[in-house]
Simulated scan of single mutants.
Amino acid sequence: MAQFTAAVIGTGPEPDNIVWGESAAMAYRHGEAYEGLSQCDIVGCADIVRENAEAFADEFDIADENVYEDYQEMLHAVEPDVVSICTPVPTHAQLVIGAAETEVPRAIHCEKPMADTWADCKRMADAADDHGVQLTFNHQRRFSPQWQEATRLLEDGVIGDLERVEMGGKNLYDYGSHLVDLCNHFAGEQEAEWVLGQVHYTDEDVRYGVHNENQGLVTWRYDNGVHGVASTGFGSGADVIGCEHRLFGSEGILEVNPDDVEADLRYRNTDSGGWETFEFDRVFAIQRALEHVCDSLETGDQPVISAEHALRATEIIFAAWESARQRGRIELPLEAEGNALTEMVDAGDLTPVGEED
């Protein structure tokens, strides 16, 4: 087994000061994950607030001389194999591209969502390709047992051929990027052909620097004929689905994290005579994701949380917002380069009210 060194960009404040939507101390979760990997040692960190970087270094026994405010200076000095980027979303593109251009790290693992515009998402992936860097995004739910078991059951044919995948969650972008990514996974990583969506946005919800709709309803179609449906919102849109994922097959139905049910997963088909339920022990999915990052770096195989897969999910999300703006179906590939939800707010077409207003 190869040994790797790792570093973190954007340590943020220590976990006792978590403010959801502003700082979730994800760097500390990455640090804990690296500590748990026998093939990886965390050796450096950087944050524009030096006190934050020093606190992180104290937590993870990083040498004082490997603590920096300038991330590029840190990369050149420490020369890590893998670097995690755990900063607010609007900074992701600049940092991923800047880190790739140093040609120091062999792998960059960035927090999700990818970036706050579609153009920047593509620029990040292109920069990684141009500089031969393995770029992944922290869609760690692919490594959680309920979704892995759902994959196994689907591949074993317990619900027949997949016809439709549904998702319900808080929003399309921040939380929803996980769920759309998994929709694509269940559909066999197919390209979406078109997206049709509508959103409701009256109460300002800015998460890690980016607007998120209050409620959304979206449908799309994959190249293989499978359809996707998403309904989002707190106590509203998500309740329409009643679980995080529902897979409709030709011979049955499978649900992941169903609401108000003592189960992490359940399915029924023509032979089951009712619901078959499953419960699983919780796992540290971020550690599994980073282990996969290192394993992929060693083997040269494409990671399942690759930039290519993240682009596919993010395109559906941005296309849904663009559909709401244009009031029509969006054919893919997506031509709009920006972020339609933010642009509608900036133009005054949507006027969400913040708590201080």
Rank of each mutant, 00 (worst) to 15 (best):
T277V: 14
L172Q: 11
L37W: 11
D161C: 09
A7G: 13
S144T: 12
Y68W: 15
D16L: 03
A107F: 11
E155Y: 00
K122E: 14
V293Y: 08
G44H: 08
P352T: 10
P80D: 13
P105Y: 10
D295N: 08
H211P: 06
A125F: 04
E193F: 00
V133L: 09
Y208F: 14
I42E: 01
E101V: 04
L179Y: 09
T102R: 09
T151N: 05
C110D: 10
T270W: 03
G197W: 04
G249I: 05
R106H: 14
V293H: 00
M1S: 13
Q287H: 02
T232K: 02
V19C: 01
D301P: 02
P145A: 07
S84G: 12
A25H: 10
W147N: 06
E331G: 11
A336F: 13
A46R: 02
A93N: 03
Q190C: 14
R123Q: 15
E14Q: 14
E69W: 11
P90I: 01
D156N: 14
V206G: 07
I48S: 15
R327D: 15
V206L: 05
G44T: 09
A107Q: 07
H109E: 04
I108S: 08
E291N: 04
Y175P: 01
K122V: 05
G328Q: 03
E103A: 09
E155H: 05
G132E: 06
H76T: 11
I97S: 03
C183K: 01
F280M: 13
A336W: 12
L332M: 14
V78H: 10
E69T: 15
E204K: 08
A2W: 00
S296G: 04
F318W: 15
D223P: 01
Q148A: 05
A127R: 00
A99Q: 06
S250Y: 05
F234Y: 06
A289R: 01
C110P: 03
N339G: 06
A324T: 03
P352N: 08
T117D: 13
R325Y: 06
W147F: 11
D264L: 07
E335C: 02
D156C: 06
H227V: 14
R325D: 07
N138A: 12
A115M: 11
D81P: 07
Q326L: 14
H92R: 03
L332F: 08
S144A: 11
K112H: 07
E166L: 02
S306C: 00
F284S: 07
Q148G: 04
F186M: 05
A128T: 10
